[in-house]
Design a protein around this nucleic acid. Structure first.
Lengths: 137, 137
DNA sequence: TTTTATGCAAACCGTTTGCAGGACA
DNA sequence: TGTCCTGCAAACGGTTTGCATAAAA
């Protein structure tokens, strides 16, 4: 997917900042938050502001380029993987890892129980990752 | 369960404020947030501060009297139902409803996929409740 | 009497907003 | 050229904190 094209198609201008932000999240498995992205870009784009990161991510979320995560912590994280899936966060090192999970079954169950028309499903786990488990022994 | 006893057992003092806060959440199906609790108590306890509500809820969460929820919105909500279960929030009226759900299967799946030792599971849905569905027709 | 809790106000932190100057198309 | 974007700084909203006073044990 060409991000420049996607931006143009949705009526947004292509700017160096937007390309740079996309560069940091594209196939980035670390699920960074706005601050992470900002700090990553700081050396190469010292004039870029945190507000621009936020505004860019809002657009990216709107046009379906990223997914916004709430992993039981204060700051939002962004995931380039927009395919529906769950997340697990390590309470020791704060690493966040993707988890494949069929959510249709859960949606159906919730709909049956409550009568709601279900829009979104969010599944998130916390735990201790393999590396931190080793360190603790 | 006698809240006064639970507080004492855990080394906390029993105060009118704590009893009053507990009174608003005990068997309250509305999953209120701190502001809601504060406003509910305002008429009867005009001197009670929002800070006290927060401090009280922190204790209640610590001693297992309430569960803290993140329902894909800004403010936390509190649930007197501490039995593991999921939640669904109506995006129109913001009502939050409990959903029974077996989370052991999901935990096991996540553990198998990632190697994590799973601590917590959070499942939350958004959608449109039956009443708001009717209104929209 | 000792210890803990309250209420106030200020601080905090992630995020959003308004706006003047600057860049894209 | 017209429109949109950027960067700054200030505002915002939910939450936390420090501290003097007050209440519980």
């Amino acid at each position: 997917m060409d991000i420049a094209e996607v931006l143009r198609k949705n009526g947004y201008k292509v700017t160096p900042q937007r390309l740079a932000v996309f560069g940091t999240i594209d196939h980035n498995p670390n699920h960074p938050n706005a601050e992470d992205i900002y700090k990553t870009l700081q050396p190469r784009y010292p004039s870029m502001s945190l507000a621009t990161v936020y505004k860019t991510m809002e657009i990216f979320a709107k046009i379906g380029v990223v997914q916004v995560l709430q992993c039981e912590e204060d700051a939002h994280r962004y995931d380039f993987n927009t395919h529906p899936h769950a997340h697990i966060r390590c309470v020791r090192c704060n690493r966040v890892v993707d988890v494949d999970m069929d959510r249709d079954v859960l949606s159906k169950l919730a709909a049956e129980q409550t009568g709601f028309k279900v829009n979104t499903v969010s599944i998130s786990f916390t735990g201790v990752c393999t590396e931190c488990q080793k360190k603790e022994q």
